[in-house]
Design a binder for these strands. Structure first.
Ligand code: MN
Ligand code: MN
Ligand code: ZN
Ligand code: ZN
Lengths: 141, 141
DNA sequence: TGCATCTTTAGAAATATTCTAAACTACTTG
DNA sequence: CAAGTAGTTTAGAATATTTCTAAAGATGCA
C-alpha cells in the first residue's frame, strides 16, 4: 500500500519556492516554510508557529517569525485573517474560500467559496477598487 | 422650516436607555452614550471616543471608555468590527448591515444588507450555532 | 575567497487592551 | 434625607501583540 503524498506539495523544495518569491532561503525561512507548507492547509498565529519551529531545534526568534509571516503574506504565499482584536491568523490556503470562526474556542475553519455567492453588494466608494471580500461566519457552541 | 430630528433618537433620554440596558446612568456613561447615540450612526475607536468626550469637558479615563464600550456591546447597544490587527471599531449601527473597509485610509463604511445575500454557506461545525455573519469588502484607492 | 547585501537577533519600544485596588457615586432603605 | 452598600471610575501598572533598532551573522555573487 503506497503512502499518501501531501496534497499540495508534490516536490517540497522549499528553498526554491522561497527564491521564486524573491526571498533568500535562509535556514529560518526554510524551516518556517516547511512547517507551514509541507502538510495540509493551516491557520497559525505567530506564537504558535514560533513554538512549532523551535520544537524542530532550528533556532529562530519571534521577531523573525513576524518578519517571515509578513514577507510570506506580501509575497502571496499566505493570507492574513483577523477575527478579533489581537487575534490574527496566517492562512496557508490562499485560494478563494471563507471561514467559520468558533468564538467559544478560537478555532478557524475553512469552507470553500465555489458554492458561496455574495450578491447585492453596492458599488464600492468612489475611487476605490475591491481587493478582497472576507466572509466570516461566527459560531458558538 | 422645522429642524430635522435625529433619525434614530426621537427622545434622547440616555439615562433611561442605559437603565433599560441594566447599566447605571453615571456621568461618564451618559456622556459617552450622548456622543455615540445622539446623531447618525458612527464607527468609533476607544481612542477617538475618548478624545471626543474629553472635549465636552466631562472627565473620563480611557479605562472607563473601554469598560463602557465593552458593556454597551455586551448589552447589544453596539457591535464591534475588527478589520485589522489592533484596529477595532465600535459600531452604533446594530441592524443587519455589512462594511466596506478602505484599507488605504482606515475608513469603514456601512452598506445595507437587505439587498445582500450570502448563499451556499455550508452547515456550521457540529454542535455550533451561527451568531453572526460578517462580510467585509476590502477596497483600496 | 572577498565583499556587498540581506537577514537574524536580543532587547527596547510602540500599541492596544485589561487589571488592580483605592476613591467615588448612584441607588436603596429607614 | 442620612446612612449604607453595591456598582463605578480612576491612575497606574500589567499584559499582549507587533514593530523597531542596531549590531552580529549568513547568503550569494564576482
Ligand atoms: Mn502586519
Ligand atoms: Mn473586548
Ligand atoms: Zn482559511
Ligand atoms: Zn457599520
Amino acid at each position: 500500500m503506497a503512502l499518501h503524498m501531501s496534497s499540495a506539495n508534490p516536490s517540497p523544495d522549499f528553498a526554491e519556492r522561497l527564491r521564486e518569491a524573491g526571498l533568500r532561503p535562509t535556514r529560518q525561512r526554510v524551516a518556517l516554510a516547511r512547517v507551514l507548507f509541507e502538510g495540509d492547509h493551516r491557520h497559525v498565529t505567530a506564537e504558535s508557529l514560533h513554538a512549532e519551529v523551535k520544537a524542530t531545534k532550528i533556532p529562530v526568534s519571534l521577531a523573525t517569525v513576524y518578519n517571515a509571516l509578513n514577507q510570506f503574506r506580501d509575497a502571496g504565499l499566505l493570507r492574513e485573517v483577523v477575527v478579533a482584536p489581537g487575534r490574527s491568523y496566517f492562512d496557508t490556503n490562499i485560494g478563494h474560500h471563507h471561514h467559520f470562526f468558533v468564538e467559544t474556542d478560537n478555532e478557524l475553519h475553512d469552507f470553500p467559496s465555489h458554492d458561496v455567492t455574495v450578491e447585492g453588494v453596492p458599488a464600492p466608494p468612489a475611487g476605490t477598487q475591491v481587493s478582497r471580500v472576507d466572509v466570516i461566519v461566527r459560531v458558538r457552541r
